[in-house]
């Protein structure tokens, strides 16, 4: 499973990525997680299974979905994002891919 996160500059999502990787390792999940700025993310979406957008770029969901084709594109909720709730975000991603 390969998860891609995107936000405005790829800075704040990279914080979240660290937490998600830790969480995934603790659960023994076989996942790769990466973060990119939005425009770069849309270029490399082919290499991933799911795209998670930070809430600050929720307006770009339509464009992102167009680029992602039939891969799921989710917007992380403001509360989960603010509290860097890696557990919940991974749960949501796993559920979307199931």
């Amino acid at each position: 499973m390969k998860i891609l996160l995107a936000c405005n500059a790829g800075m704040s999502t990279s914080l979240l990525v660290q937490k998600m990787r830790k969480e995934a390792a603790a659960r023994n999940l076989n996942v790769e997680i990466d973060a990119r700025p939005l425009n770069k993310a849309l270029e490399v979406i082919d290499e991933f299974d799911i795209l998670l957008l930070g809430p600050q770029i929720s307006y770009a969901k339509k464009d992102a979905q167009a680029a992602a084709g039939d891969k799921p594109v989710l917007v992380i909720s403001m509360a989960d994002y603010g509290r860097m709730n890696a557990k919940k975000i991974i749960d949501d991603a796993v559920e979307a891919l199931a």
């Binding site: 936000c7 800075m11 704040s12 914080l15 600050q56 403001m78 509360a79 603010g82 509290r83 860097m84």
Partner: peptide, 16 residues
């Protein structure tokens, strides 16, 4: 820590 480097999404969405 991110705030020192002017990154503040956790504050904006978490404080909130």
């Amino acid at each position: 820590l991110p705030g020192i480097f002017n990154i503040n999404e956790p504050v904006i969405y978490g404080y909130p």
